[in-house]
Structures are given as C-alpha cells and as structure tokens.
C-alpha cells in the first residue's frame, strides 16, 4: 500500500511538473488532426462517406494517443530513469522491479487519461462528430488495448537498456501503430490486439454497441491476445535484463 502511495505521489507531482509538456502534446496532435480533417473535407466534398471517415479519424487519433501513452510509459520511462540515475534505485525495491514497474503502469493510466480524454473531447468538438461513450464498455476495451502496448513498452525498454539508442526504431513503431488500425478485421490480422481492439472500440464508439453485445469470439480473442502480448513483453524484458546485468550496464546511458 505504501509503495502504491509513493508511486502515486510521484506520478501526480511529475504530471504537475510536466503539465506544459502534456498541453503542448495535445496541441500538436490537434494540429495534425485539423490538417487531416481539412484535407478530408476538401478531398471528399459532399461525399456520403465523409461522416464515417471523420468519425473513424476521431477514434483512430484518440486510440493512437492512448496507445502512444502506453508505449511511452515504459520505453521512455526506463530510458529516463536510466538517464537521470534513478533506475537502480527502483531495482533496489524489495518488491522487485517487475512489481514496481507494473504498479507504475497501473498508475500511469492517470496521466494517460489526463492526455487522451481532453484530446477526445477536443477532437469531437472540432469535427462535430460526437461518439457514443459508454464508460464501462470503453474502459474495458481501452484497458485491454493498452495492455499489449505495455508489453511492447517492456520490449523496447529492455532494448533501450541494452542498445541505448533506439529512438529511430521506436519512432517507426509509434507511427506503425496507426497502420495496424487499417488492417482488416479478419484472420490472421485479428490476432494483433491493436487491430482487433481498434475495430471493437470503433464499433462501440461509433455504433454505440455495448460490451455484452460485441461478438464474444472476437472479444475473447482480443482479450487473450492482449494478455499474451503483455506477458510476452514482460518475458522478453526479463531476457534482456539478464543480459544487461551480465554486461553490467544497468543504469548506464
């Protein structure tokens, strides 16, 4: 409990310290969204499909920001801790770094929401496309959507410890996530939780379909792959961490 309290206090303080960063991040995404929105409106004037496209854009931008938050929490989190010389202190917790980092992820949902929710509201206001927000449905789907991002975050965090400079690969992954949204909602693509999750959330937010009315097979595949991605990421991190400790470069950056 004291560990959670300590991590929570730290998260809130750091969120306050980096408030300008959060606001400027939202403004950047909004500007990109505005440019694309205007592009769509000029490219498809009077098109019947424009409404759908704009709704899809709102969902995609919202989910993109949500997933980037998830990916960044660990990848940049571990890199930053190593750079500022506090990573080893986190490792010296009697609970172990696994527990500390998983709790950090749980708590980071606060800062992730602080970024993504205002962004969603702004995107809906700008586009005039108001989506269905069934809090229970969206919360569950968002949780399982961010879980594989955390898994990837572990992988890239471990790679950052081992190889140090992975910014270029990470930028490609950041952009590549949007590409995964565009893949069809069928086998084998639906085994990628980012793809199946996007289609499920899209249906929930655009058509107002509740969690209990979503196809059980699709939903369970999404949840299972999401958990697998997370556990897989954690496992790979463990392998990379072992190598890093053998080389004695934990905390070197």
């Amino acid at each position: 409990m004291n560990l959670v309290r300590a991590l929570l206090i730290r998260e809130i303080q750091l969120l306050r310290s980096y408030a300008f960063n959060t606001v400027s991040g939202i403004i950047t995404v909004v500007i990109i969204f505005l440019i694309l929105l205007l592009g769509v409106r000029y490219a498809l004037p009077g098109s019947g499909g424009m409404g759908n496209t704009e709704e899809a854009m709102v969902v995609a931008f919202f989910l993109w920001s949500w997933l980037l938050g998830g990916l960044n929490t660990l990848t940049w989190g571990i890199t930053m801790e190593a750079q500022q010389g506090t990573l080893e202190q986190l490792y010296m917790s009697p609970y172990g770094f696994r527990v500390v980092s998983i709790l950090m992820l749980g708590i980071s949902i606060i800062s992730n929401l602080a970024f993504s929710v205002p962004l969603l509201v702004i995107l809906m206001l700008i586009s005039g496309r108001f989506l269905h927000i069934d809090v229970a449905t969206v919360s569950v789907l968002l949780f399982f959507m961010v879980l594989p991002a955390y898994g990837l975050g572990y992988v890239f965090g471990g790679m950052a410890l081992l190889y140090k400079r992975i910014q270029n690969v990470f930028q490609v992954i950041n952009m590549g996530v949007v590409g995964l949204f565009m893949l069809p909602d069928s086998f084998p693509w639906n085994l990628i939780p980012f793809t199946s999750g996007y289609h499920l959330i899209s249906r929930a937010m655009r058509q107002g379909i509740g969690l209990t009315h979503l196809p059980p097979a699709e939903l369970s595949t999404f949840i299972a792959t999401s958990i697998l991605f997370f556990l897989g990421g954690l496992w790979i991190y463990g392998l990379l961490e072992k190598r890093v400790k053998r080389l004695g470069i934990l905390g070197h950056y």
């Binding site: 004291n2 991590l7 730290r10 750091l14 980096y18 506090t86």
Partner: peptide, 27 residues
C-alpha cells in the same frame, strides 16, 4: 551509486524522502 543522481530532481526534498521510503513499503 557513484555518478548517479539517485534522487528525482523534479520532486521536492520531502517528496523524495516519501518516495524512497515508500519504495521499501514503509512510511
């Protein structure tokens, strides 16, 4: 450890103290 900050620069003196004692599950 040598060469490390070992503390969070963006946290206050008291917050750092609270954080590190909490990291050990104490208060």
């Amino acid at each position: 450890l040598e060469g490390n900050r070992n503390i969070y620069w963006r946290l206050t003196v008291e917050q750092n103290l609270q954080f590190f004692v909490g990291l050990s599950g104490k208060w």
